[in-house]
């Protein structure tokens, strides 16, 4: 081949070599792919540990072990709560994430707002959904502006016990 073909080709080969060299230096050695191969899982292997080390916020875990964390100290209260109608609601949904309670924070910030109750107890006319089993009110007519907990006990919501 003639010289005029080789000279630009040398430049291209040089650029490719430079990019490969840069890639070799810049990409950490712990990059690799797992079971799913290069197409789906080429990544920095150390990053999996980064995600595993994220801090926990909610401590009360799962339906099977519900109230376990809270029950360690608040055992009696938790026992009562689990038998009432609202016993299916995890403590932390209203009392907030436990974080490192009781050390930090010492007191949890409880969400006592009307909007929290309305998540389930807004009257929605959906007879085909599970929502039909939950008593609902029209938030624009039912004691507007007042907090639900002024009258209702969230831990024992039965109307006959009010």
């Amino acid at each position: 081949m003639k010289n005029h073909v080789w000279r630009p080709l040398y430049v291209v080969i040089g650029i490719v070599a430079a990019i490969l060299l840069f890639r070799e230096v810049y990409v950490p050695g712990n990059f690799g792919s797992g079971e799913y191969g290069f197409m789906y899982s080429y990544h920095n292997k150390d990053n999996e540990q980064v995600w595993k080390d994220q801090p926990l916020k909610y401590q009360d875990t799962g339906k099977q072990k519900m109230h376990e964390y809270c029950g360690e100290c608040h055992g009696d209260e938790v026992d009562i709560r689990t038998t009432d109608l609202h016993g299916i609601i995890p403590c932390e949904n209203c009392h907030g994430p436990a974080l490192d309670h009781p050390d930090d924070p010492e007191l949890l910030e409880i969400d006592r707002s009307r909007d929290l109750c309305l998540r389930c107890h807004t009257l929605l006319p959906y007879t085909t959904s599970e929502r039909k089993r939950i008593p609902g009110i029209d938030p624009n007519e039912h004691n507007v502006g007042e907090d639900c907990i002024d009258c209702h006990n969230p831990h024992n919501p039965r109307l006959e016990d009010m």
Partner: peptide, 8 residues
């Protein structure tokens, strides 16, 4: 860049 991936 290989920033998103599927774990094993």
């Amino acid at each position: 860049v290989g920033a998103t991936y599927k774990t094993d």
